[in-house]
């Protein structure tokens, strides 16, 4: 049976990145699933990784993997790969994973396949181009094959299994301790995480100015269990932090309901949200591309409709 590895990003408290659980769910369908977790929290994550189908987890809690960008982890992974010879290594398209996978491609000589949205087998992957309008199947190459998968491409489901822990003991040369993280600033979000929220309300340039985002906050607060997102145009304009960005260079969301307010529907935005179960759009331009993928489209002025919607939702919630 093929050996399929998942590189799992973990937090110091042992929390596993959701995308890694999605990848494990797919990995166990393709072969024998194993995981690699490096950095503080790794050994605490073993149980969770096992629950999602990893039979073995190669883990190390060593700070070196979190303190220095990419090089120590790429080195350790390479050593592990030489020793255990997996057929395929899956990474989620996250910041650190992307850097590590890129370096590993040079080390192994395997072509790294990016932006994967589906896996047919251990050597055939699918990607989407033109904002998801065209699907492309690609024959993977190399030993092992290396793939970066977009988050939310698969649904994470526990297998109820448990994993054996194998402690990683790799020497990391001082040479690899160069790009050092000296400070960490993470914004504590209130409410559900954007990636996990069942309802996402997003704003674009059509909101006119930064201050109008509070209308979206108010609506999200009323609905409850809703998160606010944004387009790159307004993130670049500084209206909201980058953490709000949805799309090709931002987050991928798959909520039950996506409300797009004053968003044109550029392909780079759509790739990040078209997996939503239901889409509602408000835009004053009836030709806006967002209407082509919306289940309900309202042609009108968002600044007029939003306050009315807030009142409507408030009264219906009673």
């Amino acid at each position: 049976m093929a050996k399929v590895w998942v590189y799992a990003e973990v937090s110091p408290d042992g929390t596993v990145d959701t995308a890694a659980l999605e990848l494990l769910t797919k990995a166990r369908e393709l072969g024998d699933a194993e995981a690699v977790a490096l950095g503080p929290g790794a050994t605490d994550a073993v149980e969770k990784l096992g629950e999602y189908g990893a039979t073995t987890v190669y883990a190390s809690d060593d700070d070196v993997y979190a303190d220095y960008v990419a090089q120590p982890a790429a080195h350790a992974l390479h050593e592990l790969i030489e020793e255990h010879e997996p057929d395929l290594v899956l990474f989620a398209t996250n910041y650190d994973s992307r850097d590590i996978a890129g370096r590993l491609s040079a080390k192994t000589g395997s072509t790294l396949m990016s932006n994967v949205t589906g896996l047919h087998s251990v050597d055939k992957a699918q990607t989407a181009i033109f904002g998801g309008a065209t699907l492309v199947d690609v024959e993977l190459e190399g030993n092992p094959k290396l793939v970066l998968v977009r988050p939310k491409s698969f649904v994470a489901e526990p297998s109820g299994g448990s994993a054996e822990l194998v402690e990683v003991d790799v020497d990391v040369d001082d040479d690899l301790k160069k790009a050092e993280r000296v400070e960490r600033h993470e914004e504590e979000a209130s409410g559900p995480r954007l990636e996990d929220a069942p309802v996402v309300i997003s704003g674009g340039r059509g909101l006119g100015e930064a201050g109008n985002f509070k209308l979206l906050d108010e609506l999200a607060g009323l609905i409850g269990n809703a998160a606010v997102g944004a387009t790159r145009a307004v993130v670049d304009a500084g209206w909201v932090p980058y953490a709000y960005q949805i799309g090709q260079t931002g987050k991928t969301v798959k909520p039950g309901v996506y409300v797009a307010v004053g968003i044109s529907g550029a392909t780079q935005h759509i790739v990040g949200m078209k997996g939503a179960k239901r889409i509602v759009a408000i835009n004053k331009d009836e030709e806006a591309p967002i209407f082509q993928i919306a289940d309900l489209g309202i042609v009108g002025d968002a600044l007029k409709i939003l306050p009315q919607l807030v009142e409507e939702v408030r009264s219906r919630k009673g």
């Binding site: 998801g132 690609v138 919306a294 309900l296 489209g297």
Partner: peptide, 19 residues
């Protein structure tokens, strides 16, 4: 690495658009 197939993705259908 080689592309073996290209296909149109299943399109999301436009729903109702109202003024």
């Amino acid at each position: 690495q080689s592309i073996v197939e290209l296909a149109a993705a299943e399109e999301r259908k436009a729903g109702e658009v109202v003024q």
